[in-house]
Simulated assay, not measured.
Amino acid sequence: MSTPAPSAGRLAQLRQAYQMTKKTQPRIGLLLISVFVLSAAATAGLGILLLGTRWFSIIIVAILALTVAMLATMIVFGKRAEKSMYQQAEGQLGAGAGALQMLRNRWEVKPAVAFTKQQDVVHRVIGRPGVVLVGEGQHARVKNLLGSEVKKHQRIVGEGVPVTTMIVGRGDGEVPLPDLVKRVKKLKKAIKPAQQTDLLYKLKALDAMRPAAPMPRGPIPTSMKGARKMMRG
């Protein structure tokens, strides 16, 4: 009889994230060791100063120092891993969809609701700010595609529901991939949760008339999602 090993998947995920991070940050190992040692030493020094050097105080300080050091190391690693994932994913088809999939709670993400033969795509996010359409691809083509999608969505959702557009990229008026999720989250709330549910039902009719989009299922979205999952623990 085999027993489940939930930590195995966790360790594999950490290993994958570390290997990918090392591609863009070769000294990540040295950095993490330094963070662990310095945070442990600082915590131990402060603990001894406050609790003294009696044996039970030393045990408490040691446990506290290890806990703080591990937490600090994981926080730094998470930030570095996220930055590395974005660096490797930026400019590749599907990177925007991978980033948007990190949205949680009341956010509903549907990748590639519209696309062109040149592989320009538009993803849709529904949340308290209303409808957010995010485009990826060549700026001029994506802008035209977004304009068409805005008209289609406005006819379905009606007045009072904002339809916001964004284009992923580094050009003028575009949103860099690392800032995409933050930019979406910062949008002003405009609808209530009940309206959000109604929007999902209304837009099902629009989606049903579309052909299936050939979205890539490569390592970009998966790795980015895995890195964020790892950071959340």
Rank of each mutant, 00 (worst) to 15 (best):
D207W: 09
D198F: 00
Q196G: 12
V181M: 12
L187V: 04
L177Q: 07
A212P: 03
T164Q: 11
L200W: 00
T164F: 03
D207Q: 13
T164W: 04
D179W: 00
L180N: 09
A205D: 13
P176R: 04
P178T: 03
T197P: 03
K202Y: 00
L206M: 14
I167F: 02
L187F: 02
A213T: 08
R210T: 12
V175Q: 12
A213G: 10
P193G: 07
P193Q: 09
L206V: 07
Y201C: 00
K186I: 01
L187R: 07
V161E: 11
G160H: 06
A212C: 05
K202N: 11
V168C: 12
K189P: 03
I156Q: 12
G160T: 05
G158N: 07
G160P: 02
K189A: 15
I156W: 03
R183V: 05
V161M: 10
G169A: 05
Q154R: 11
L203Q: 07
D179K: 07
E174P: 04
A194I: 06
I156V: 14
A194T: 12
A190L: 05
G169L: 06
I156F: 03
K182E: 14
G173W: 01
K204I: 01
V184H: 03
I191A: 10
M166L: 15
D172S: 12
Q154H: 01
D172C: 00
P193R: 09
V161P: 03
V168F: 02
L206F: 11
G160N: 10
D198E: 15
R183E: 15
G169Q: 05
P178D: 08
P162G: 07
L177A: 09
M209Q: 14
D172M: 00
V161Y: 04
K192R: 12
Q196R: 13
G160V: 04
